[in-house]
Computed example of a mutant assay.
Amino acid sequence: MTTAAFPPGFIVTHAFVTVCAACLMAALTLWLQRSRGWYFMLIALWIPGTVLAFWLPSLIMTPKLFPSEPIPVLTSIVQGFFISPTLSIPLMGALISAPPGLSRTAQALGADRSRRLALVWLPLLRQRMVLGGVAIVILSIIMTFSLVWRLPVSI
């Protein structure tokens, strides 16, 4: 196992890139049509995706690519995409199980878009957003350390 000297802020930068990539992918997932099939597919891919994200630096890094080329940043982005179900699964579960006419009812009672968001959706999703956000931050820090101290791959 080899480690290289890293510039200051390397871990923070790559953890931030991983968090941003995970949040972007989770937002894209939530923007798509929410159906139970998509939800179950995310659940099925969640654990293999997380394991692959941990293993990814060992699969693609070689000593001559690391750290002089942009490969570590691209690895962090891909790792963020792989761990994004950790954030989107709890949120999508709440959105799928919410009553279908909840937003229409609030609109019929006179709530505009911002009031519906503040009074209906944020209270419904707050705890799940905090849970998913904390999990994503912890996983991104661990992913950055897996990038720094990559595991040797045995064939």
Rank of each mutant, 00 (worst) to 15 (best):
Pro7Gln: 10
Leu56Pro: 02
Ser146His: 09
Ile141Arg: 01
Ser154Leu: 12
Leu119Ala: 14
Met129Thr: 13
Met25Trp: 12
Thr75Ala: 04
Ala53Gly: 12
Phe6Met: 11
Ile142Pro: 00
Leu125Gly: 06
Leu65Arg: 07
Ala15Ile: 00
Met41Asn: 15
Leu91Asp: 02
Cys23Met: 14
Ser76His: 01
Leu95Ala: 13
Val120Leu: 12
Ser76Cys: 05
Cys23His: 06
Ser114Leu: 13
Arg104Ser: 11
Phe6Gln: 08
Pro48Gly: 10
Ile141Trp: 04
Gly37Tyr: 09
Pro123Ala: 09
Leu122Val: 15
Gly132Tyr: 08
Leu151Gln: 10
Pro99Trp: 00
Ser154Val: 14
Leu117His: 14
Leu119Glu: 15
Val12Phe: 11
Leu45His: 14
Pro67Asp: 12
Leu119Phe: 08
His14Glu: 08
Ile89Lys: 03
Ala5Val: 10
Val148Cys: 03
Met129Leu: 15
Phe40Arg: 13
Leu28Pro: 01
Leu74Ala: 09
Ala108Ser: 12
Met25Pro: 00
Ser68Lys: 12
Ile142Glu: 07
Gly9Val: 14
Ser76Asn: 05
Val17Phe: 02
Leu87Tyr: 09
Val12Gln: 11
Leu119Thr: 15
Ser84Gly: 11
Gly132Arg: 02
Val148Met: 10
Arg126Phe: 15
Val153Met: 10
Trp46Ala: 14
Arg126Asp: 07
Ala98Asp: 15
Gly110Tyr: 01
Tyr39His: 10
Pro123Val: 04
Ser97Glu: 11
Ile43Ala: 14
Arg150His: 02
Trp121Asn: 11
Pro99Ser: 06
Thr75Gly: 00
Leu87Pro: 09
Gly133Phe: 06
Val134Ala: 03
Leu74Val: 10
Ala5Glu: 09
Ile89Glu: 07
Thr86Arg: 01
Leu102Ile: 11
Gly101Glu: 13
Ala15Cys: 07
Leu139Gly: 04
His14Gln: 01
Ala5Tyr: 12
Glu69Gly: 09
Gly93Leu: 06
Arg34Met: 08
Ala53Met: 07
Ser146Cys: 05
Val17Arg: 00
Leu42Val: 02
Leu56Arg: 09
Arg150Thr: 01
Ala111Ser: 05
Leu59Thr: 07
Met1Cys: 03
Met61Glu: 06
Ala44Lys: 12
Ile141Ala: 06
Leu119His: 10
Leu65Phe: 13
Ser88Ile: 01
Leu95Ile: 14
Arg104Gln: 15
Cys20Ser: 08
Trp38Asn: 07
Thr18Phe: 00
Ala98His: 10
Ala5Ile: 05
Ala22Asn: 03
Ile89Thr: 12
Cys20Phe: 05
Ala5Pro: 09
Ser114Tyr: 08
Arg150Tyr: 01
Arg104Glu: 15
Phe6Ile: 01
Val153Ile: 12
Met143Glu: 08
Leu28Asn: 07
Leu147Phe: 02
Pro63Tyr: 02
Trp31Phe: 12
Ser140Cys: 01
Phe145Val: 05
Leu119Arg: 07
Thr13Arg: 08
Ala106Tyr: 06
Pro152Ile: 06
Trp31Ser: 10
Leu151Asp: 09
Thr18Pro: 00
Ala15Phe: 04
Ala106Leu: 04
Ser76Ile: 01
Pro63Val: 13
Pro85Gln: 14
Ser114Ile: 06
Tyr39Trp: 15
Met61Ser: 04
Met92Thr: 01
Gly132Thr: 04
Phe10Tyr: 10
Arg126Met: 12
Leu74Pro: 04
Val137Ser: 05
Thr29Pro: 06
Gln33Val: 02
Leu74Phe: 10
Ser146Val: 07
Ala27Ile: 03
Leu91His: 05
